[in-house]
């Protein structure tokens, strides 16, 4: 009995004795904020192991940038730029530093083919132009005399309903195939990815695997868990060939949509390699009030491969800018149409 009371006494006193001093920070100390950012990323960022051949070791990154904090920062803007440059070493489009005056970004599609001309697709009557219908983030139309259905989905944050999809797919009943154009779609909600995939499968399908970080070590991960999608009502499922158009600006949720669709029966990915971004972002903040977002939980495709650096298309086609400029033709859409109407 005495032992029990002693344990309780020690436990209670430890609660009182252990104050929260370890959580007290000097809000505007430059080095303390820098250390804080470095440590948060060190403990929570999920791709250190995967990127060990393509990025600098994180402890060396600290050495490189801490000297810059000491010697190269004379004002808050320069300080922000040094912190942003440090995060840029991760080569991850999901990593951002938010301050009251700027947001840092890593350009994941730098030095890659653009493969998309917005004006050409949106304002050219051959593609979307005037006679276009739009609902729930989709713009859609039939091309090639009604033989090809075309859907432009520019943002996975735009939600849609069953009724929306029923309306769209019903209008494509007489088509020979469908094009889903997700070029320049920078991502959004994963729930919309799963929802959209469910209109193109006929049985419950594993679209990928999820893993979460279980601790501060670079290799602390849980075992993978399959992410399954079940088909919607059988009457509405589109059972003809589908071509998903991609480019290097397809990122995050769009990247997931592409790897979920890749390999499914009747579905081909056409265009350029996607931008990647297969980490689930997580947010935290610094004592100075700036916020940080980074990849914390990796997602794998159905072959247990990480697609952080993108998904390769089944048919690689890049935009012919000369043709686009002179003949107002998007050769990526044209190629997909040709495949559908069997010209190729």
């Amino acid at each position: 009995m005495k032992k029990i009371f002693a344990i309780i006494f020690v436990a209670v006193s430890s609660v009182f004795a252990s104050c929260d001093d370890d959580l007290e920070y000097d809000d505007f100390d430059a080095i303390e904020n820098f250390n804080f950012l470095w440590k948060e990323i060190d403990e929570k960022y999920c791709f250190f192991d995967y990127k060990k051949d393509s990025i600098m070791r994180w402890d060396l990154v600290y050495d490189k940038y801490v000297t810059k904090i000491y010697y190269d920062c004379s004002n808050v803007t320069e300080y922000f730029d040094v912190m942003a440059a440090m995060l840029g070493e991760l080569k991850d489009g999901h990593v951002n530093l938010y301050s009251s005056f700027d947001v840092s970004k890593y350009d994941f599609a730098d030095n890659t083919p653009i493969d998309f001309d917005y004006n050409l697709v949106m304002y050219n009557d051959r593609y979307l132009g005037k006679d276009t219908r739009s609902i729930g983030g989709f713009r859609y139309k039939t091309l090639r005399d009604g033989k090809v259905g075309y859907i432009r989905y520019a943002d996975f944050s735009s939600s849609f309903s069953y009724a929306n999809m029923y309306g769209i797919l019903s209008s494509f009943e007489d088509t020979e195939g469908l094009i889903i154009d997700v070029r320049n779609n920078g991502g959004g909600a994963i729930t919309n990815v799963n929802k959209l995939v469910s209109y193109f499968i006929e049985e419950t399908t594993v679209i990928g695997y999820r893993v979460n970080k279980t601790g501060p070590g670079h290799s602390d991960f849980s075992s993978p868990v399959a992410e399954k999608v079940s088909p919607v009502d059988n009457e509405i499922i589109y059972k003809k060939p589908v071509y998903v158009l991609t480019n290097s600006r397809c990122y995050s949720a769009t990247n997931e949509f592409v790897y979920a669709m890749k390999g499914l029966p009747r579905i081909k990915i056409l265009g350029g390699k996607t931008g990647g971004g297969c980490g689930m972002p997580f947010s935290t903040e610094l004592p100075c009030g700036w916020r940080v977002r980074f990849s914390a939980n990796p997602c794998y495709d159905k072959n247990m491969q990480i697609t952080e650096f993108g998904v390769d298309p089944d048919i690689e086609v890049h935009l012919d800018e000369e043709l686009a400029y002179r003949a107002k033709l998007d050769n990526i859409i044209e190629t997909a149409c040709d495949y559908i109407v069997k010209k190729k």
Binding site: K44, N212, K213, G215, P216, S222, M280, F282, N297
Partner: peptide, 8 residues
């Protein structure tokens, strides 16, 4: 767990 999201 740690950085796990409720999405799981």
């Amino acid at each position: 767990t740690y950085t796990q999201l409720y999405y799981d």
